[in-house]
Design a protein around this nucleic acid. Sequence first.
DNA 1: AGCACGCCGACT
DNA 2: GTCGGCGTGCTC
Length: 749
Amino acid sequence: MAVQNDLQLQETHPLHYYEVAVNRPLFQTYTYASFQPISLGCRVQVKLGHSTEVGIVVAQSTKAPDSDFTITTIDKIIDPTPILSAEILTLCHWGSSYYFQPLGEFIFTFIPNYLKQAKLLESLYIEAFEITSKGKYAKLPSQAIKQSDALATIQTLATTSNSNLVAKTTLNQHDIKSDTLRQLLKKELIQKSLIPPYAYTTAPTQTNENSLTLNQEQSDAVSTVIKNQNTFKSILLEGVTGSGKTEVYLNICRHFLNQGQQVLLLVPEIGLTPQLSERLQTQLPYPMITLHSDLANKERASRWLQTKHSTSLVVIGTRSAIACDLPKLACIILDEEHDSSFKQQEGIRYHSRSLAIKRAQLKSIPILLGSATPSLETLTNAEQGRYQHLRLTKRATGANLPEIEIQDSSRLTANQVFTDSTSEAIRNTLQKQQQVLVFINRRGFAPTLQCSQCHWVADCEHCDVALTIHKATNSLDCHHCEHKQPIPRRCPSCNSPYMSPLGFGTERIESELIQHFPDHPIIRMDRDSTQNRGSLEKIRQTLLEGTPCILVGTQMVSKGHDFPNLTLSVVLNCDNGLHNQDFRSKEHLLQNLIQVAGRSGRSKLQGQVIIQTNYPDHPLFVHFKEQDFPGFAKEELTHRKKLGLPPFHHQAAIRMQSLMDNQAFQKLLSLEKYLKDCVYAQGNQNLDISLTMPAAIERKSNWYRYLIVVSSPSRKHLHQYLNIAHEYLLKIPRTKKLKWVIDVDPLDT
DNA sequence: AGCACGCCGACT
DNA sequence: GTCGGCGTGCTC
């Protein structure tokens, strides 16, 4: 072992060794030397291979490396103070090994893009001062008026704000000169830190504490969480739509904030509506930070760095906010815990719910999982006593359950959208000056373009899917890759001019509605219509005004919004959720339907829900009509238990894809054989290894995709075998033509 | 993931 | 003879 730099000059300084993780798919960390001690969690710049990388110091090396390679020194220490706390580092270590993701990449998924470069945060950080313990009781000579004034000012500002740290700019505004501060620093009466600017914490605003009085169930929920203060405890809050979960969250937040502590509120991707943050903001006289995906880079970084500097703080964020630094974290709340957007499906795969629970455990704090329709995993955890199960059974707002009607759509012709009775209901609602929601989980005009003569269908040339017709752009778009093409005039197969759209998407529903209800505004809300910044907000404002109108949209309409004058929800085309091969599709469909139903009649007005289906007798609708999610869950769980499916068996998918159709399949086959041999050799009956099979869409962007599903009732056994599989996979290099990934707790197999 | 190295085939 | 495509292996 040798150190590259000149040791002679540095001899008096001890050499430190650190493990550094970089943002690359490497399943190990690398050891670097430093003449200066560095805190764990700081960013550093290091040479790796032939390039320069930003890395995170994740550990102190326990031993000086004994092999014969040359250790290089760290080029530069980027951060004066860690950007990741020890707690977050521990969480990332756990997550990285639980999910079989490279530590560096895992850590970097939580770091804002702005901080992924080596740029020092000079533009972001500002100087701040706080009084030292020595400074608190210091007696200054009577002629040092400026210094004692300065101390007094810092003291006052510190007590009126929520932090001991007072920004230098603030002090300058109070006529305190830099020179005075320097003298106080020299006497160690104050100390200096670099902190991110405070501009992004919303200042405590006007208090509006005339909160609604809670009913018994609600206040029980609040007190259960408070009672478990400083204890690791998972609590499921199962509250029917409108039962006032938000009030519960609010009161929990208020309690902990009053104590000068912090609360982390995680919400689904599109659930982070201004509505929710406004509500919390006006009800809690404390600062709040929201972290969502479409913030400008710099602003996001600024907010992210800010969270650790403010006591009495609520952070509201999506998935990745689980790893923001909150030293005074007292409680985690995971709203809509069943929502699948908490699971990252691309790139680094992890589930925020699992990380949140792990974090609560590491920190010994309670975690509240809220939902009207809990995931069967969470329900089972509650059932088996691992989580406490609380229920909110009463609609707190006083609104009644919506009237639910299942309409048989099997006799409609191919070009008919609504049954007569549905049209009638829409007309009536508009006549009553109320609003209608039409929900269809498919964007575009129609999902297929077909030749009426020879039944040729326009398929994507890169994927095994049909192209979607988009009238707005007058093109055929693939929803699985970037491919777009013009709509052909004639059939490329038989030259017939009769090409017709098959099926319905939001665009087509919109145009149908415009024909049928020309006197009312039709508003479309899907990914295509909300691409511009602010367009979502504009739609929301229109709906809040209460003008009678029809809102047509995908999934995105069903989350988080609260429009008091919306009284009718119509659900179209949910039938593939009934018969999908994915075992979770029924669970997800019912969760979705109940959520959509919850959109109508949220105020005093009676709500109404119409489902149009070709299978009106499907048992799922019986549960839906009675809003009986627990009943459904019970049946479904019996079924899952019988089949050895989650949550009774834990699963992992080993996914492999290649640009050549055979490669990934062949390599997976040999892994399958290897794993089966291992299981056989050890005589383990506790593990099930599936056959190598094609993914639901076998070819996507020209990648041929296959998977093996490994499952076991024992988490320990599953991971034991995943470790074996992982060892094997590490010998198969991931190249430009072949990729693999282990997907622990997959949501789609 | 980058990047270099090295092996092969093509082309002034 | 050399330019460059791509498969392979390494990064403290």
